[in-house]
């Protein structure tokens, strides 16, 4: 080989070896290898402070699969679509999770982060606009608190507090028959435990019972309006979504409470509202299911309580509520 030929070969070698790998990688990326088809949308998750989901606004069509490649740019996140049955998937830092969703009904859906990623975790949300033939628009009934005209922000202390913790087990025993009007779902959801207690107390059916025993009956009414399955489901939803602020024991002292308080103070300047204490009988026994459901659906409006309306289905809200009352009643 001549000197010139050797040099030419060397230059070619240098270029191929030094640039071949990076260029091949970039071409592969642009050609979409790994990403696959163009219909795939790549979504990057990041802390809400760092921008949340990107892109955060998606469109889809009824009946057509929406293919997503999800990755996180910082910490562990999760992905789920609110008001739907699609299972949540983890979105791990620097890894890609693929998922495919097909919508049956048109509408505006919210996707959200399912793994706690800081005090602004709940702000990590995006929307999916699903277009499609609106043949039979689902009749959306307004939430119960709207129908009942409840003021969600009014204080609701119970005017009567039991001396001992009410127990549904004990309440199931006494021979007192529960008047039929108290057993209907509509009645139960519209009334607080304290109101039910007063009504029962006034009822001739419970004339024989002591006050505490009436409370046991109230606890029984509450249990009758839940199922073991809904309690399990409620407990799961609570642990995943509520416990970080409201605490594992419901006492309002979750691990996020401190940083939430400092953030609220910084944001609004006023003394921060603490996460609600579900072990406080005055609060819990003075609120009707409809009221608490309203708070969950609408959120706390400046208290740091997220709005869960677009995320939890109605049955999920009832499930988590049935679990909430186990903090004050057995």
């Amino acid at each position: 080989m001549t000197a010139k030929g050797a040099e030419r070969a060397a230059r070619l070698t240098a270029i191929v070896l030094a640039l071949g790998l990076p260029v091949a990688a970039l071409i592969a990326r642009w050609a979409g290898w790994g990403a696959g088809r163009d219909s795939v949308i790549e979504i990057h998750g990041a802390l809400a402070e760092a921008g949340g989901w990107a892109p955060a606004d998606l469109t889809a069509t009824v009946g057509e699969p929406l293919r997503l490649r999800l990755t996180s740019d910082d910490v562990m996140h999760g992905f789920a679509v609110g008001q739907s049955d699609w299972p949540a998937v983890d979105v791990a830092p620097g890894e890609v999770t693929e998922t495919t969703i097909t919508f049956n009904r048109p509408g505006k859906y919210v996707f959200y982060c399912t793994r706690w990623c800081g005090v602004n975790h709940w702000r990590m949300r995006g929307t999916i606009e699903v277009a499609g033939p609106t043949t039979s628009p689902a009749i959306e009934s307004p939430p119960l608190y709207v129908t009942l005209g409840l003021d969600l922000d009014a204080p609701h202390p119970a005017d009567v507090i039991p001396e001992r913790r009410p127990s549904a087990d004990r309440g199931a025993e006494p021979g007192a028959t529960i008047p039929v009007e108290f057993s209907t779902g509509e009645y139960f959801r519209a009334h607080s435990p304290a109101e039910v207690w007063r009504a029962l107390r006034a009822s001739p059916a419970s004339r024989e019972l002591a006050d505490a025993e009436v409370w046991d009956v109230v606890a029984f009414v509450w249990r009758s309006n839940s199922t073991p399955e809904s309690l399990v489901e409620g407990k799961r939803i609570y642990a995943a979504n509520c416990a970080a602020c409201h605490g594992e024991t419901g006492a309002g002292n979750g691990v996020m409470a401190a940083s939430l308080a400092s953030q609220l103070t910084a944001e609004f300047g006023h003394g921060a509202t603490k996460p609600a204490d579900f072990t406080d009988p005055a609060k819990m026994l003075g609120a009707s299911p409809a009221l608490l459901q309203g708070k969950i659906i609408r959120g706390g409006m400046g208290t740091g309580m997220p709005y869960w309306g677009p995320i939890l289905t109605e049955s999920q809200t009832w499930a988590v509520l049935s679990y909430l009352w186990t903090f004050v009643m057995d």
């Binding site: 793994r115 800081g118 416990a243 691990v255």
Partner: peptide, 22 residues
């Protein structure tokens, strides 16, 4: 208390992960 963390213990080869609130 902020994001998902884990704890891997050297020598014992044990691992656990925890979400805030859980």
């Amino acid at each position: 208390t902020d994001v998902v963390h884990g704890l891997y213990l050297d020598g014992y080869d044990l691992n656990v992960t925890a979400d805030p609130g859980q």
